[in-house]
Amino acid sequence: MNNVFVICEIDEGKVADVSLELMTKGRSLANELKCKLEAVVLGQDLDGVEAQLFPYGADVVHVGDDKRLAPFTTLPHTSMIVGLFKEEKPQIALLGASTMGRDLGPRISSALQSGLTADCTSLVIGGHEDKKAGKSYENLLYQIRPAFGGNIVATIINPDCRPQMATVREGVMKKEIFDAAYTGEVNKLDVDKFLKPEDLVVNVLDRHMEKSKVNIKNSSIIIAGGYGMGSKENFNALYELADVLGAEVGASRAAVDAGYAEHERQIGQTGVTVRPKLYIACGISGQIQHTAGMEESSMIIAVNNDPNAPINKLADYAITGDVMEVIPKLIKYYKQNTK
């Protein structure tokens, strides 16, 4: 009772990275709260799945293994988790901010009338004084996220409702094995107990999964373009530089919204979070919605014609000038010095 839960996602038999990242975060929250960490895994053919989760510090792994639970559809998964949560009463429940987590999370939170904060960039335990009501709270989950288009950072709490729920995007939290020899217990869920016949009104007719062509997350050098690039054509200069440096091209939300780059290249709170060795930000002003996804880069070079752009405060090098003048020079002098 009152433990920390992570609702895990399964991708071709493997627990998804975002879920393992949340297990790592969940383990440290559970340690701080002196409670257990529990994982929920739903799907089909899940024999032995707990072995993937114990090293991340799972004390209990709840497994619902049934053909009605794969491929993922919202209603059966909701019924399973709502049923389980009514019994287990978690204090915290975390999900990946994936298409699955962002579909399932709100449905569960509505059924349990509990609060949910989407796309958190940080989760911290802390207290709260409600002076109006004269109540004080300890050990709440601070759900911290950029809000309002990334213009501010908000700390959200759920003082009275449980579980406190949050979704977090892939790459935001670090994935770390807690103890390779750690073991816990497995709880096989009775699927028939929770599933209702009316949960099966949605059928997946067809599914095409493709491996992403863009691999920003694992690239050690990223060249990112913002709205300041001015056009899709100008983005070609970034691909050229990326080609020369062996880098990937990323983009800010404004650039993606303007159609300069594909969505899968988007870096930031509503895109991918990256930690490359070198990040070159071209024509990016540096709204938090973007910087939340790249501020942990080892080295940052900003190219911007505004000397006061916020991105310059994060940068190790700030080049003030026209991106279309600077990029060809970066290419030229890289080539000249590596000959």
Binding site: Q113, S114, G115, L116, T117, H128, Y142, Q143, P146, A147, N151, I152, V153, A154, T155, I156, I157, N158, P159, D160, C161, G286, I288, T291, A302, P310, N312, K313, L314, A315, D316, Y317, A318
Partner: peptide, 17 residues
């Protein structure tokens, strides 16, 4: 159920570029 505890404008740690 969710309450806004705090809103902050973002201040970057001034790193000298």
């Amino acid at each position: 159920p969710t309450k806004v505890k705090k809103i902050e404008n973002v201040v970057f740690q001034a790193k000298e570029a």
